[in-house]
Measured scan of single mutants.
Amino acid sequence: EFTQISGYVNAFGSQRGSVLTVKVENDEGWTLVEEDFDRADYGSDPEFVAEVSSYLKRNGGIKDLTKVL
């Protein structure tokens, strides 16, 4: 089950073990991109978060400006 990723309007994530599946949706709710990120592939949590965040930004993730990150 996908849940909204904090700080984004149209990005959602689903966690299974160490694998986080993220997706970005358009205004109609269609999935634009979907990608798996395995936490085990990264040396640290900040590196993992930075990679996921960068992916979302590159692929149309819209920041939720009503929330302070």
Rank of each mutant, 00 (worst) to 15 (best):
residue 1 E to M: 11
residue 1 E to Y: 11
residue 1 E to S: 12
residue 2 F to Y: 09
residue 2 F to D: 04
residue 2 F to V: 05
residue 2 F to G: 05
residue 2 F to L: 05
residue 2 F to C: 09
residue 3 T to G: 06
residue 3 T to L: 10
residue 3 T to K: 14
residue 4 Q to K: 14
residue 4 Q to P: 12
residue 4 Q to R: 15
residue 4 Q to D: 04
residue 4 Q to W: 07
residue 4 Q to I: 13
residue 5 I to D: 03
residue 5 I to R: 03
residue 6 S to A: 13
residue 6 S to E: 13
residue 6 S to R: 11
residue 7 G to F: 05
residue 7 G to K: 04
residue 8 Y to F: 11
residue 8 Y to M: 05
residue 9 V to I: 11
residue 9 V to H: 08
residue 9 V to Y: 07
residue 9 V to E: 05
residue 9 V to S: 08
residue 10 N to F: 04
residue 10 N to T: 05
residue 11 A to M: 02
residue 11 A to C: 13
residue 11 A to Q: 01
residue 11 A to P: 01
residue 11 A to K: 01
residue 12 F to R: 04
residue 12 F to K: 06
residue 13 G to R: 06
residue 13 G to S: 12
residue 13 G to C: 15
residue 14 S to A: 12
residue 14 S to Y: 13
residue 14 S to H: 09
residue 14 S to V: 13
residue 15 Q to L: 14
residue 15 Q to R: 15
residue 15 Q to E: 06
residue 16 R to D: 04
residue 16 R to M: 06
residue 16 R to N: 10
residue 16 R to K: 10
residue 16 R to I: 07
residue 17 G to W: 04
residue 17 G to A: 02
residue 17 G to H: 02
residue 17 G to S: 02
residue 18 S to Q: 06
residue 18 S to I: 04
residue 18 S to E: 03
residue 18 S to V: 03
residue 18 S to Y: 02
residue 18 S to A: 04
residue 18 S to L: 06
residue 19 V to K: 06
residue 20 L to C: 15
residue 20 L to W: 07
residue 20 L to Y: 08
residue 20 L to F: 09
residue 20 L to P: 00
residue 21 T to M: 04
residue 21 T to V: 08
residue 22 V to W: 02
residue 22 V to S: 00
residue 22 V to L: 04
residue 22 V to A: 00
residue 22 V to F: 02
residue 23 K to H: 07
residue 23 K to Y: 08
residue 23 K to Q: 05
residue 23 K to F: 07
residue 23 K to D: 00
residue 24 V to Q: 00
residue 24 V to H: 01
residue 24 V to Y: 02
residue 25 E to C: 15
residue 25 E to D: 05
residue 26 N to F: 06
residue 26 N to Y: 06
residue 27 D to G: 10
residue 27 D to P: 11
residue 27 D to H: 10
residue 27 D to M: 11
residue 28 E to D: 11
residue 28 E to A: 10
residue 28 E to M: 11
residue 28 E to V: 10
residue 29 G to V: 03
residue 29 G to R: 04
residue 30 W to G: 12
residue 30 W to E: 14
residue 31 T to F: 06
residue 31 T to Q: 05
residue 31 T to C: 10
residue 31 T to W: 06
residue 31 T to H: 03
residue 32 L to I: 13
residue 32 L to D: 03
residue 32 L to Q: 06
residue 32 L to G: 03
residue 32 L to A: 07
residue 32 L to K: 05
residue 32 L to W: 08
residue 32 L to P: 03
residue 32 L to H: 06
residue 33 V to P: 02
residue 33 V to H: 12
residue 33 V to D: 05
residue 33 V to A: 14
residue 34 E to C: 15
residue 34 E to P: 02
residue 35 E to V: 13
residue 35 E to H: 15
residue 35 E to L: 09
residue 35 E to Y: 13
residue 36 D to L: 10
residue 37 F to H: 00
residue 37 F to Y: 01
residue 38 D to H: 03
residue 38 D to C: 06
residue 38 D to A: 02
residue 38 D to R: 03
residue 38 D to V: 02
residue 38 D to E: 02
residue 39 R to A: 03
residue 39 R to S: 02
residue 39 R to H: 03
residue 39 R to Q: 02
residue 40 A to Q: 09
residue 40 A to E: 09
residue 40 A to D: 09
residue 40 A to M: 09
residue 41 D to N: 12
residue 41 D to L: 09
residue 41 D to I: 07
residue 41 D to T: 07
residue 42 Y to E: 00
residue 42 Y to H: 02
residue 42 Y to S: 01
residue 42 Y to V: 00
residue 43 G to S: 11
residue 43 G to A: 13
residue 43 G to L: 10
residue 43 G to C: 13
residue 44 S to P: 01
residue 44 S to E: 03
residue 44 S to H: 01
residue 44 S to C: 06
residue 45 D to M: 09
residue 45 D to K: 04
residue 45 D to V: 08
residue 45 D to A: 06
residue 46 P to Y: 15
residue 46 P to N: 14
residue 46 P to V: 15
residue 46 P to T: 15
residue 46 P to A: 15
residue 46 P to F: 15
residue 46 P to L: 15
residue 46 P to E: 15
residue 47 E to G: 01
residue 47 E to P: 01
residue 47 E to V: 05
residue 47 E to H: 05
residue 48 F to N: 00
residue 48 F to S: 00
residue 49 V to P: 00
residue 49 V to G: 06
residue 50 A to I: 07
residue 50 A to V: 06
residue 50 A to N: 10
residue 50 A to D: 09
residue 50 A to L: 09
residue 51 E to R: 09
residue 52 V to K: 02
residue 52 V to S: 00
residue 52 V to G: 02
residue 52 V to M: 03
residue 52 V to L: 10
residue 52 V to P: 01
residue 53 S to N: 14
residue 53 S to I: 14
residue 53 S to V: 15
residue 53 S to G: 09
residue 53 S to E: 15
residue 53 S to Y: 14
residue 53 S to C: 15
residue 54 S to H: 09
residue 54 S to G: 11
residue 54 S to M: 10
residue 55 Y to V: 02
residue 55 Y to L: 04
residue 55 Y to I: 03
residue 56 L to G: 00
residue 56 L to Q: 00
residue 56 L to D: 02
residue 57 K to T: 13
residue 57 K to S: 14
residue 57 K to G: 10
residue 58 R to T: 09
residue 58 R to D: 11
residue 59 N to G: 02
residue 59 N to H: 12
residue 59 N to Y: 10
residue 59 N to V: 09
residue 59 N to F: 10
residue 60 G to D: 01
residue 60 G to R: 02
residue 60 G to H: 05
residue 60 G to K: 03
residue 61 G to T: 06
residue 61 G to Y: 05
residue 61 G to N: 02
residue 62 I to P: 01
residue 62 I to S: 04
residue 62 I to F: 07
residue 63 K to D: 06
residue 63 K to Q: 11
residue 63 K to Y: 12
residue 63 K to F: 13
residue 64 D to H: 08
residue 64 D to G: 08
residue 64 D to W: 08
residue 64 D to A: 10
residue 64 D to C: 14
residue 64 D to E: 10
residue 64 D to L: 07
residue 65 L to D: 10
residue 65 L to G: 10
residue 65 L to I: 11
residue 65 L to Y: 10
residue 65 L to C: 15
residue 66 T to Y: 09
residue 66 T to R: 09
residue 66 T to L: 12
residue 66 T to D: 11
residue 66 T to M: 09
residue 66 T to P: 07
residue 67 K to A: 10
residue 67 K to G: 13
residue 67 K to P: 13
residue 67 K to Y: 12
residue 68 V to E: 14
residue 68 V to A: 11
residue 68 V to H: 11
residue 68 V to L: 11
residue 69 L to F: 08
residue 69 L to M: 11
